[in-house]
Structure formats: structure tokens, C-alpha cells
């Protein structure tokens, strides 16, 4: 069948929609939201990191920029969630372009170092920027009855599609996650993905064969950054309170790196598998053990997979089936 993947996407979205209509414990929406967000973030990371081999440590920076772009728009004129997501995507994309322009002509380590420092500098700027709450953080009040194209979306009495704003945002997150997986897959099988793979294997050789390396790297950085920004934009509306340490949490950077590494970085399904597995483990560990142990688990798994099983779970299974 030709559109197997696309049909799968639609089925996943349908399942998510039914899930929002079911009357179950709110915690499952919260956990599901976190996992879907990680699917999107790690997929976005993998476009540059997995296909191109350029490690981005600044995931927290891109997400934070997305979150704060959304907050600034809400403060400015009470923008709707869709506008916030689009604007955050554009701004984070430009951020990727800027940092890529400065560092992508050099060895990959310089890009990695610059992105690592980027998150800290952005946090400094937001700490000093009182319009979006500064160091004290900011609370967001979600609109009571959001509409989209004239259709009432959320209404507690049941007139809208969803009963609760969280359910709406959960579904939106699912749409974005599926969209980014689709984008990553399209890139992987397209010209861009093949070019990035060539860069990863041997950049000099790729350039000699006529691959426009700088251009491809910049395009990948912009797409990856924009997707991260979009994932960050939905975050303030969902948690309704954001301060710089949460928005620029290093945990995000570690997760976005560890999930693709654990799943397998060379194909689109790797980050999906990694984030669903690790995301679920984390949600369980946070509730049952403690959040510090949970962070320790990520760190140890990351080191384990980087040293012993660099192909990740997907690579491991593929080798077994051969």
C-alpha cells in the first residue's frame, strides 16, 4: 500500500481523539501530553542530530524561546494558541538560522558548545525581561471559550468539541507530534536527508561530490529549531505557570538527546520508540520513586547506549532480524 504511513498517522490521531473523549483520570492526559511533547522534541532534535550528526545541546533554549514567544504574544494582545504556535515556530527557526550561521561552518563541536551556552544566555535575558514575568515567572489564564474558525472548541457544558482545555491542548499536541514525525520521515527519504547522511559520514567527501553542505545544515537547523519552538509554545498554556528555570530546564536537553540515542538515531522511528519508552518510564518513576532518581536513570541510560549500543534499540532489532 502506498499511503501506509499516512493512514497510520490518521489512525493514531483518531485514537488520541477518542482518548480525549473518554472519562478517565486526569493524570493520564498529563502523562500522555508529556510523552507526546517528547516525541515531537526528540524527532525535531533527530533531524539535525541523527541525520546530520550535529549535536544540539540547546534544546532547552529553543523550547524556552518558543514558550516565551507565546507568553509575550499573550501579554501583548491575548493571542490564540494557533497564532502562538506559528509565531514561536518562526522565531525559533530564526534563532536556529542565526546560531547556525555563526557556527555551522566550523567543526561540529563548536556548534554543540555554542548551543549549550545558548540556553544559559537566553535564560539570562528572560530573567532580566520583566514584560514576560522576569525571574519571578508568569501565570497564564487560558481563554474560557476558545473558538477556531467559528467553531466552539472547549465548553464545560458539552457544547464544544472538548469538555476541558487540557483535552484540547492534548489533542493539539498529538497533531503536532504526528506532523513532526511525518516531516522527519519525509526529510529522511528525500534529498535533504540523503545529503545530511552524507555530511554525517564524511563532510569533506560530501562537499567534494557537490552536496551544498552549509545550506543543508542550515535548513535542517531551522526546521529542527522551529519544531522545538512550536513544542515549547504550547507548554505555557498547558501548565499555566512558567518561570525561567522550568522553561530552560537542562532535563529537556538531556531527554531530547537521550531519547533518539536510545531509540536509534538513523531512522524516524528511533526517536519515537525512544521517547515513548523513556517517557513512560519517566512518568512512572516520577510518581513511584522520585524525580532525582528519574534523572539519574536518564543519565545512566544515555551513557550506556552511547558507549555500548550506539545503534539504539531499533538498530539492535534490525541487526537481529537480518
Amino acid at each position: 500500500m502506498r499511503f501506509k504511513f499516512e493512514i497510520g498517522c490518521v489512525l493514531v490521531l483518531l485514537a488520541c481523539f477518542i482518548f480525549t473523549q473518554a472519562d478517565i483520570n486526569r493524570f493520564y492526559y498529563f502523562a500522555g501530553f508529556a510523552i507526546l511533547q517528547y516525541v515531537m522534541i526528540s524527532t525535531a532534535w533527530n533531524i539535525l542530530g541523527g541525520y546530520g550528526g550535529y549535536i544540539n545541546f540547546g534544546t532547552a533554549g529553543f523550547l524556552g524561546v518558543g514558550s516565551y514567544a507565546a507568553i509575550a504574544l499573550i501579554e501583548f494582545y491575548g493571542a490564540g494558541i494557533i497564532e502562538q504556535i506559528v509565531a514561536a515556530g518562526i522565531i525559533a527557526g530564526f534563532l536556529g538560522l542565526a546560531i547556525g550561521f555563526f557556527t555551522l561552518r566550523l567543526k561540529g563541536v563548536y556548534f554543540a558548545i555554542a548551543t549549550l551556552a545558548l540556553a544559559i544566555v537566553l535564560e539570562t535575558i528572560v530573567n532580566n525581561w520583566d514584560y514576560v514575568g522576569g525571574a519571578a515567572g508568569v501565570s497564564i489564564l487560558p481563554p474560557r471559550k476558545p473558538e477556531l474558525l467559528g467553531i466552539l472548541i472547549v465548553d464545560r457544558k458539552g457544547d464544544g468539541i472538548f469538555q476541558n482545555n487540557k483535552e484540547y491542548l492534548f489533542f493539539l499536541m498529538a497533531v503536532m507530534a504526528v506532523m513532526s514525525v511525518w516531516i522527519a520521515r519525509t526529510i529522511e527519504f528525500g534529498k535533504l536527508g540523503r545529503g545530511l547522511n552524507a555530511i554525517k559520514d564524511n563532510e569533506e567527501a560530501a562537499e567534494c561530490m557537490g552536496v551544498p553542505t552549509l545550506k543543508l545544515k542550515l535548513v535542517a537547523t531551522v526546521i529542527s529549531g522551529a519544531l522545538m519552538g512550536m513544542a515549547g509554545a504550547i507548554f505555557p498554556s498547558y501548565v499555566t505557570y512558567v518561570d525561567p528555570p522550568t522553561a530552560f530546564n537542562l532535563e529537556l536537553a538531556v531527554n531530547s538527546l537521550a531519547m533518539p540515542m536510545i531509540g536509534g538515531t538513523f531512522t524516524w522511528i528511533g526517536p519515537v520508540v525512544g521517547s515513548i519508552l523513556l517517557g513512560t518510564v519517566q512518568q512512572v518513576a516520577i510518581v513511584t520513586i522520585s524525580s532525582e532518581i528519574n534523572l539519574l536513570i536518564i543519565g545512566v541510560l544515555l551513557i550506556f547506549f552511547v558507549t555500548v549500543a550506539p545503534q539504539g534499540i531499533v538498530g539492535w532489532f534490525m541487526k537481529k532480524n537480518k
Binding site: 550528526g53 549535536i55 563541536v109 543519565g299 545512566v300 544515555l302
Partner: peptide, 18 residues
């Protein structure tokens, strides 16, 4: 790849901090 080593040190950083 040199970049895998980078991920290794990043993991080390994170574990030490936790």
C-alpha cells in the same frame, strides 16, 4: 564519531550534577 564522545561527556555532566 567525535560527537558521540560529546554525548558521553554530556551524560557524565548530567549524572554528576544529579
Amino acid at each position: 564519531e567525535a560527537l558521540r564522545g560529546l554525548a558521553f561527556f554530556f551524560g557524565l555532566l548530567f549524572i554528576a550534577e544529579v
